[in-house]
């Protein structure tokens, strides 16, 4: 029986994954034009941060749960944020008939 050589899953792995997720989310926010997609990408960025929090906590101080607790807080807040964000998007759509981010640039200087 051959033992498959599995690379050790360490902190760096998690952080790389979290960075990739965060980068994807950021790219989505920075380039996406559909507001729903922007919101989802924001969720992605938040979850990348959650992952990093949990991973770092587990490595640095395994007996302590503060990283996990903070991650749950972030989940809660992001749920609320998503609710408000979607409400805003719906309101915008009802008023203007568009959910394109480029359509809303009244604050142009």
């Amino acid at each position: 029986m051959s033992v498959a050589v599995t690379p050790e899953i360490g902190l760096s792995t998690y952080l790389v994954l979290a960075s990739i997720l965060f980068g994807l989310g950021f790219m989505g926010v920075a380039t996406g034009r559909h507001l729903m997609r922007t919101l989802m990408c924001v969720e992605l960025m938040l979850n990348a941060v959650n992952l990093a929090l949990v991973a770092i906590n587990n490595t640095v101080n395994p007996g302590d749960l503060s990283g996990q607790v903070f991650a749950i807080f972030v989940l809660t807040v992001s749920a609320a944020e998503a609710a408000v964000g979607i409400a805003i998007v719906i309101a915008l759509f009802k008023n203007t008939g568009s959910v394109d981010a480029d359509a809303f640039k009244e604050l142009k200087g």
Partner: peptide, 18 residues
Amino acid sequence: LIRRLQTGRIQTYVTVLG
């Protein structure tokens, strides 16, 4: 001159921020 930085587009702000 400076006011041209204020595009009003969220994407720009986010990009600059990032």
